[in-house]
Amino acid sequence: MSSAPSRSSTDPVASALVEAAATLSVAIRAVAASNPVVLIDGRSGAGKTSLARALVARWPLRGRVQLVALDSLYPGWDGLDAGVDLAREQILVPHARGLIGVWQRWDWDAAQPAEAHAVDPSLPLIVEGSGLLTAVTARLGDVRVWLESPPESRRQRALSRDGDAFRPHWDQWAAQEDRHVAGDEPRRLATHVFAIP
């Protein structure tokens, strides 16, 4: 066993995400279903993708879990609401009805839809992305997560991840998130709220 300190013991963000994933693992087991749906929302850079990946890595049920990131559905930089609508219509509603959902990846470089992907309703599902928790989508999620994180921390993480592609669109995207937070009150719709430093 290594005597080197673990990353999570020195990185407060990693520690918060590990703790959140552990808490959600318990909540997922408590749903007592073979195909629960987990929805993860939060502003850009809050840690949604990292939490989703951590949750996949420690998935508490037998078999595999499907993961869909709304970054693959948003149709461009003005597409927050449209991406959520696509997720609801093509992924969440079919899954809830026991039907195979089919969604198309948005090709950001070509600015058009690309290949199609299927979602198996018999398997559990994690969907993560900004704008995801609304009054309608909340009814389709068994475990609903809202991540809180300070604006400067979020901006630093998002821009270090996406760099020059995101920088010119930061304010444009943030305005859409502002409307979502004010109009949909995602924190109120969440079953779990986590603070990410």
Rank of each mutant, 00 (worst) to 15 (best):
D71G: 03
F194Q: 14
R53S: 13
A21V: 11
T137M: 10
V38W: 02
S44W: 03
R64W: 09
P36C: 12
S34H: 12
S9V: 04
S50D: 09
P124A: 13
S3R: 05
R187L: 12
G83H: 04
G45N: 10
V145K: 09
L70K: 03
Q176I: 06
G76R: 00
I100P: 00
E185D: 15
G76F: 04
P113C: 05
S9T: 11
A174C: 07
G76T: 00
P75W: 09
L70F: 03
S130C: 15
I28H: 02
E185R: 15
R43Q: 14
D71I: 01
P60Y: 04
S8Q: 13
D41M: 08
R179F: 02
V145E: 10
V93E: 08
D171H: 08
L159W: 01
D71Q: 03
V68M: 06
A4D: 11
L39K: 10
D178T: 06
A87L: 06
E177P: 05
P60K: 04
W108K: 03
H117D: 09
P94D: 08
L147T: 11
S160F: 00
T137P: 13
P150I: 02
H192W: 09
A116Y: 01
L159Q: 06
L73I: 08
A116V: 02
L147G: 07
A82C: 01
P186W: 04
G141F: 06
D184T: 14
S9C: 07
S15H: 06
A46S: 15
L51V: 08
T191H: 12
R62S: 14
A33Q: 15
E185S: 15
M1F: 00
V143Q: 06
V65R: 05
A195F: 03
D78P: 00
D81K: 07
A110L: 09
V84N: 05
A20T: 04
P186A: 09
A82W: 00
V65N: 10
V181E: 15
S153L: 12
A33W: 07
R144A: 10
E185L: 15
E115P: 00
L80G: 07
Y74E: 01
S6L: 09
G129S: 06
L99P: 00
I28G: 08
A52E: 07
W108V: 12
G79W: 04
R155Y: 01
P150Q: 01
L140E: 02
V31W: 03
R167H: 09
V145C: 11
A21F: 09
A158C: 08
E89I: 00
G131W: 02
A96I: 00
I28P: 03
S149M: 03
F194L: 13
A165G: 11
A69D: 09
E89D: 12
S25F: 14
A174R: 08
D184M: 14
S2H: 11
H117C: 07
A52Y: 12
E89K: 08
G98A: 03
Q172W: 04
V119C: 10
L55S: 06
D11M: 05
Q112V: 11
I40F: 13
D164P: 04
W77L: 09
H169V: 03
R53C: 08
L73T: 01
E19R: 02
Q104D: 01
